[in-house]
């Protein structure tokens, strides 16, 4: 199994997010293969939650589609097990699903099915002791966030408790594709001094933004809603979604490495 750190070893990393089971588990498998073919270095799989407060309309809708198609944590782990292990995987989900399964059980299931990192948008470091212990026991990375509002003292404390990579939130608010890049995103990248890789997400949708983020000093770029939008537009024609996603992913990859 690949570790999160492996994604950052060769070059700047492209991290691609999709919601597992959107619109079906088979579609997820095909899309993941396409992401890897096109150069994604790490795949972030959403385990859908009924009340995703950190997500904008695109990922809310993806979560709904996936849940309606019957996705649940058991099926999620079954699905992950079948995916090619040429890249590392992280699960992105909300804390109640982890808490309900039991933090130790959840971490163990991640380890056994090929998930190397856990990303929980509603779990700040203050509340992460229990999951942190479980991650340590099963040798997983618990990914923490740094937001534009995070104070310098908090940045230091978050760096201290981080491993894998640090998720820099590019803008205030929720997930969702945007065309522009705020100046404060670049200054945030420059404010975070650490050897742990820094990856930037929230609102990144095109190669130009990705390039600017890398030029500002980030080690990786996270793209979610722009990819999920392609699934949303083509739920009846997964071939087309796969094609569009593969093309976008190649362009993004060129944007950050070229």
């Amino acid at each position: 199994m690949k570790h999160i750190a492996d994604a950052f070893k060769r070059d700047k990393a492209l991290i691609a997010y999709i919601c597992a089971g959107d619109p079906t588990p088979d579609a997820t498998t095909r899309i993941v293969h396409a992401l890897i073919r096109a150069g994604a270095d790490l795949v972030e799989l959403g385990l859908p939650f009924s009340d995703p407060i950190a997500d904008g309309p695109t990922i809310q809708a993806a979560s709904q589609r996936s849940l309606q198609a019957g996705m649940n944590p058991d099926l999620f782990f079954d699905l992950v097990k079948t995916l090619p292990k040429t890249v590392p995987y992280a699960v992105m989900t909300y804390y109640n699903l982890i808490f309900h399964r039991g933090t130790m059980t959840f971490a163990k299931d991640c380890r056994n099915h090929g998930i190397a990192g856990i990303i929980v948008p509603d779990l700040p470091p203050e509340e992460s002791d229990e999951l942190g212990e479980a991650c340590k026991k099963y040798n997983l990375d618990l990914i923490h966030f740094i937001a534009p509002t995070t104070t310098p003292e908090r940045i230091e404390r978050i760096i201290q408790s981080s491993s894998g990579f640090i998720y820099l939130v590019a803008r205030l608010g929720v997930t969702g594709a945007r065309e522009d890049l705020e100046d404060r995103t670049k200054s945030l990248i420059q404010q975070v001094h650490t050897d742990i890789p820094k990856a930037v997400g929230f609102g990144i949708s095109n190669p130009q933004q990705a390039k600017e983020i890398i030029n500002a000093g980030a080690d990786g770029v996270i793209v979610g809603s722009a990819i999920v939008d392609m699934i949303a537009r083509n739920t009846d024609d997964i071939n087309k979604a796969v094609e569009e996603i593969e093309t976008l992913t190649r362009k993004l990859k060129r944007g950050i490495t070229g």
């Binding site: 407060i53 804390y95 700040p124 203050e126 509340e127 966030f145 937001a147 509002t149 978050i158 608010g173």
Partner: peptide, 17 residues
């Protein structure tokens, strides 16, 4: 921030400050 085991601050980092 707790009432026994209940309560806490389970929110995105952007809201913590």
């Amino acid at each position: 921030s707790k009432f026994g085991k209940y309560g806490g601050q389970f929110v995105p980092e952007v809201l913590m400050p």
